[in-house]
Amino acid sequence: MPPKIQPSIRMGELGVCRETGALRTLLGSCLGVALYDRKLRVAGLAHIVLPKATGTPELPGKYADTALPELIRQMQVAVPGANLKLTAKLAGGANMFNSISAPATIGEMNTQAVERILGELRIPVIGRHLGGEQGRRMTLDAATGQVTIEIASSESTVL
């Protein structure tokens, strides 16, 4: 039986679930960051829009530098007292229209910012599905940590 999928995580939002269920988001030029602890089976997914916030943003999930600490904090709340050992998988950053170039730059900046922050936090990135010209549906299965990437009219890919 496929995992029960929670409501889609929208632009600038975060989600966490544990042991069962799945987290899903639809991505264009934004970056989806899936964090997972295989032993504790706690899963977190962020839909990041921009690399860096100014001050304290109302939407911490919107920015790479505030989304990742907030996502880890929420995952820790789900397993209080446990020592999280996380891995990361990244998807998104599409440049969907050739004539509109600015967001592609932001997509690359988001990826660089996320990879830098994950490096500082010693969280290894073990899967990537980035770039291209089409949107993606990214689904994180809390039971297995498996990330499935679907692109319209294409075969799905498992990270």
Binding site: S8, R10, M11, G12, L26, L27, G28, S29, C30, V49, L50, P57, E58, L59, K62, A94, M96, F97, N98, S99, I100, A102, P103, I106, Q134, G135, R136, R137, A152, S153
Partner: peptide
Amino acid sequence: SPPQFTHDYPQSLLQFALMNQAAASD
């Protein structure tokens, strides 16, 4: 510009189109 055709997820499409405004405001 000449119209570009796409067949894609609506949320992905809107994200891309809204990105410029999203950089300035929630």
